[in-house]
Computed example of a mutant assay.
Amino acid sequence: MTSLRIVTWNINSVRLRLPLLADLVRDMAPDVICLQETKCPDEFFPHDGTEALGFPYRAMRGMKGYNGVAVLSRVPFTVRHDDPNWCGKGDCRHLGVDLDVPGGLELHDFYVPAGGDIPDREVNPKFAHKLDFIAEATAWNRGRGPTRRSVLVGDLNIAPLEHDVWSHRQMMKIVSHTPVEVEALTGWQQAGEWRDAIRHMLPEPQKVYTWWSYRAKDWAAADKGRRLDHVWVSDDLVGKLSGHQIHKPARGWTQASDHVPVLVELKL
């Protein structure tokens, strides 16, 4: 039986926070790291630094200053080049790979648009883009049929459940927890018959957060978090889930991202 440890992390600039990747590897011992918001054109990706951490297999889709996703792996993989160009924008928000593990494993790394501040698609183009992106992802999953031997991770920028936010009542009109976003994300999940791996292991009503705003003077004392970072698995992998970690101490690292790494372990 093979153990596979997958971490997802919105790093908020891979070059700026490259030293923190060493802390992540030390603390979490991942086999695969899926990054979002790398903010780095492919030609400037820090290959030497990530190679030194023990990840010889790497793929990335990046652009200057915004967005960007990357997969770092200790195990070989093949990049899935035929996955869609979401909303026709070419804005580096998705990377799919096929991992070379027993039985094979399809892995998708997503960075969903944040959606701006106003939860109204008519007056806020960023919110419209977010909903359109999820609608396209939902149609893509529905067209592919039920997922098998698959994992989807990333910063999906929506906290769907009541206990995924610090205050369900106060967050209902705040982008990331509005009913229209929750409905959209739930539809995507159902279209692929995905299972929420973290909530499988940490069911409600446990409060679970992966993001704390930079705006709080003392993020830990306020603890006004949201669960924006997700791991979904296909139904046939639910029984393979053997562990998880939400690395909250990472929010207190020097020059920390506002997101923390999230890990799941599978016994394949």
Rank of each mutant, 00 (worst) to 15 (best):
E51S: 11
D164W: 01
V79P: 13
F77L: 03
A29R: 09
R148V: 13
T186E: 05
A184N: 06
E122M: 13
M28I: 04
M201R: 00
V71E: 05
A70L: 07
M28N: 07
V25L: 08
D98M: 09
T147A: 15
M172I: 02
G54P: 13
R149N: 12
Y209Q: 05
S150Y: 09
A52S: 11
L4P: 06
K207C: 01
G154F: 03
V123K: 13
R199W: 01
P102V: 00
T210V: 06
A220L: 13
R144T: 02
V32D: 07
V264R: 07
L131F: 12
S176E: 00
F45R: 10
I158Y: 02
E122P: 12
D31W: 01
D27G: 09
H259E: 01
A70Y: 05
K130H: 14
I33K: 07
G192V: 07
N124E: 13
D98C: 14
S242D: 04
H230S: 05
A221M: 06
F133I: 13
H168N: 02
N10R: 15
D155V: 12
I174V: 12
D48N: 12
G68L: 00
R17L: 03
L107F: 08
T38F: 01
S234N: 15
G115F: 00
C34V: 08
V79L: 09
M1I: 07
V75K: 03
A159H: 00
P46L: 02
G192C: 15
P205N: 00
M63N: 07
H177L: 01
G54L: 14
H108V: 14
I118H: 09
I6W: 04
F55A: 07
L268G: 07
G104V: 13
R80V: 15
A59N: 08
A59R: 11
Q190N: 12
D120V: 10
E181M: 02
K207W: 06
L99E: 00
I118P: 05
W219Q: 09
V153H: 06
E37Q: 07
S3Q: 06
Q190V: 14
